[in-house]
Every structure is written in structure tokens, then in C-alpha cells.
Amino acid sequence: MRVSVIGAGLGGLALAQGLRGAGIAAEVYERDPGIVARFQGYRLMLDPIGFQAVRDCLPARWHPLLDEIVMEASAEQLILDPQLNEIGRLGAARTGIVVDRQVLRHLLLTGLTVHTDAALTGYELPADGGVQAQFARRDPVTADLLVGADGVTSAVRGVLSPHTVPTDTGVRFVIGRTPLTDEFAGLSKAYGSKIAGDGVSLLLGAMCFRTPPKHAAERLAPEVELPDIGDYVRWAMILPPNGSPADLTAQESVLSRMDGWHPQLRALIEQADPDNSTLLSIRVVEPGARWASGPVTLLGDAIHATSPTGGNGANTALRDADLLRRCLIDADEGRRTLLGAVDDYERQMFGYGAEAVRSSLEKLPAFAPVAVTEVDQGFGRLG
């Protein structure tokens, strides 16, 4: 069996690793000009399903390394005012395994064949079976299965399910990271909580490695090369619609809304790495009507992009990767047909994927009080 994975995000790489471990040929095609062309290094919290999924997709010999580069975390989910006084609670405390996306991505890249500058333009289904992927600047590639793991703007989805399109919630947020120094020790109670300002919310999360990733890899898995990074605070400010003037940088946009805030909070933003601070929009993709099962399918944000306020985007993508891996192994070993395996995967994925989107949108108003009419009408769950 040959599998072509479009997109080198966490879900696509986890799938490729899992297939590689089972002896199934899988190659990854990424539209970016290079693996590190865009910074992808923010903190993620994985739930038990998401963490077990990525663990099962990785070779067992790397499990000790994986365990060394994550941290267990518990977030109180408080609501604080700009002076860090508690004024409420978001809900029950949340626990999970925290991992750095950049570090995990480099671990998942190890040993894979990844073709960069490979922007998909479409695909064809030859009469003799399989699928032929077509690219802007490389020769076509034929495989038994094409997996679109290429994100919210998925080129694969554009052909397979053109009626499934992203919905812009209208909410914008600035995300960045700042080295975790002693100066910010007093912010610990804010990690995992919401700091409520005038029309904005600031969210903080600490990434503290048990062992610096580069050193952990050198000791436990010398064949793996991980980034040389230290502990940091991930921060994100959720803005109202049109809340960021075009003439301000990402950091300036945040600081402009923090007049009178606690000096440690302002210092956190002032000392952030400007190259790793960016303005993003919150867009969602909800699985719609199923297409007829065939040699093309979708994974992760390409079919069920969630609001980051749900904390379930990476978890759901990794769950996809592990489920599809197991289904394809069954097909490769003759326990079912390939199309039967894909159909089983899609049937399960559509169910929990749609629920992940709905759940994330239900949580969005707690962080961005201004709801967007189109999203309310489209999903019927906000108000």
C-alpha cells in the first residue's frame, strides 16, 4: 500500500509515522517552501486520548523521549482582572499533558520523507484504481490513498468536498511567547486562566520542560534532532472583531489595550519574541454531508477545524491519525478492503469531529463575548 499525505502538520506527520512503523509506504507533501518556513512552536495541552494517539503513532523506542519533553499541568481556569485579582471562574479545573508544538513536530518529522514546495493543485482517479495527486511545481504522484491533512484552506477538500468551506467567526487573536524567567514567577496563578480586560481576554500558559528537548534527545534518542529551546510563557489576547489597527504590530496591538494593567503582564508582552508574535483569525470547518468513500479522505483541520478556545483541535487531529492508521493497517494485512477501511474511518471521524467543532464554539463566547451572527446561524449553538 502507498499513501500520500498532503500537509506536514501534527496530524499528517503522526499518520505518516504510524504507517511507517507498520511497514506501509507513506510520503508527505508540504506546500511551504521549507519545513521551518513558518514558526509553529506554541504550547498545546493534550487530553488522554490525544496523548495516547500520538504515542501509539510513534515507535516505542521514542516513548521515553516523548515522556521527557512533556509536562503534566493542571489549570484552575480562574477569571482574573487586569491586576490579577480573582473575579470568577471559567469552570472546573482542566488537566492534561502539555507539549510544545515545534518540539513535537520535529520528533514526528524524524525519519519521514517530506517533500516541500509541493502545493497540490488537484487530483485524478485513474480508471485502473488509486489516485494521482497533481502539484504546481513537481511531477504527479500516484498512490493507493490520498490523505488531505492540509489545514483550514485544504486544497484536497476543495476538490473532494467543495461545499465544505471555512466559517470566519469574526474573532481575532494575537499569540506570542516570552522566555520564562524569574521575573514572571508571580504570574503562575494566571496560567490556564482568563484575564478579562476592556473588551479583550488575555490567556497565559507555561511550557516547562522536564529536560531541555535538545539535551533529552541527545541522551535518549541520538537519531532525533530537537530544537534548542527553553521554558516559556505562551500568551494569547482575544480581540473583538476589527480590534487590531492595521498600522500596529502584533505586540503593539496587545499593549495598546493594556493601559493600567499589572506591570508584570505588560512586561510579559514587551519582552516577547516579535518574530513569534502574530495576529490570527478564528475560523472553523464543520463536517457536512459525507462524500462517497473512495481513495481520498481528510484529516484534522481540513475537515473539522475548531476554535482554539475549545482546546481540542490538536487532540482531534491526532485522534484522526491514530484511527486512520489502525484502519489502514487492517486493510494492508488483508482483514478488510482499503475502501472499507476508509469508510469506517470517515464514519467515526465525522461523528466526533463535528462534536469537537460544536464544543469549541460553545466555549468561544466565554472568551470573546461578541458573538458573530453568521456563526450563530450556521451552528445554532451560540447566542
Rank of each mutant, 00 (worst) to 15 (best):
S281G: 13
G380A: 09
W291N: 06
G353D: 03
F51G: 03
V131A: 05
A354G: 13
G41Y: 06
G176D: 01
G310D: 01
L90R: 15
A73I: 11
L44C: 04
M237P: 03
L66C: 02
Q377E: 12
A366K: 15
A60G: 02
V141R: 14
R101P: 09
V156F: 13
Q377R: 15
P140H: 07
V370Q: 15
E270D: 08
I195T: 07
A206S: 13
L125A: 08
S256M: 09
D322F: 11
N312P: 01
S293H: 13
M1H: 11
L338T: 01
S161H: 12
G23V: 12
P162M: 13
A143W: 10
A8E: 01
D117V: 00
G294N: 09
A314Y: 03
V165G: 00
A60D: 04
P126T: 11
I97L: 03
D231I: 00
D117I: 00
H262R: 14
G300E: 02
L364I: 09
S281D: 08
R43M: 05
A185D: 09
L202S: 03
M45E: 00
G34Y: 01
D150W: 05
A118W: 06
V159N: 05
I303Y: 04
L109D: 01
V342P: 11
S253Q: 09
D144P: 06
G192D: 03
P126V: 09
A206H: 10
A196K: 15
S359Q: 13
A341F: 06
V98H: 02
R358K: 14
D32Y: 08
L10A: 06
S256R: 15
V28Y: 09
D247F: 05
T153Q: 10
P295G: 06
I229K: 04
E27G: 07
C327S: 08
R325M: 15
R290V: 05
L109G: 00
I79F: 08
S4T: 15
G353W: 09
Y42H: 15
M71G: 10
G176Q: 04
G340N: 04
P179T: 03
R381M: 13
P245W: 12
R2W: 09
F379M: 14
L108H: 08
D332I: 00
P227K: 08
R89T: 11
P126G: 10
P227E: 00
D32P: 04
A305Q: 08
Y352K: 14
G205T: 08
E183N: 05
I69M: 06
Q134C: 14
L361N: 07
G205D: 00
H215L: 09
L125W: 03
L265H: 05
A26H: 14
S293M: 02
L382V: 14
A356I: 13
P126C: 13
A236H: 04
F135R: 12
P222T: 05
A22N: 12
E346F: 02
L268R: 12
G130C: 10
P240A: 14
V372P: 01
L78E: 01
P213Q: 08
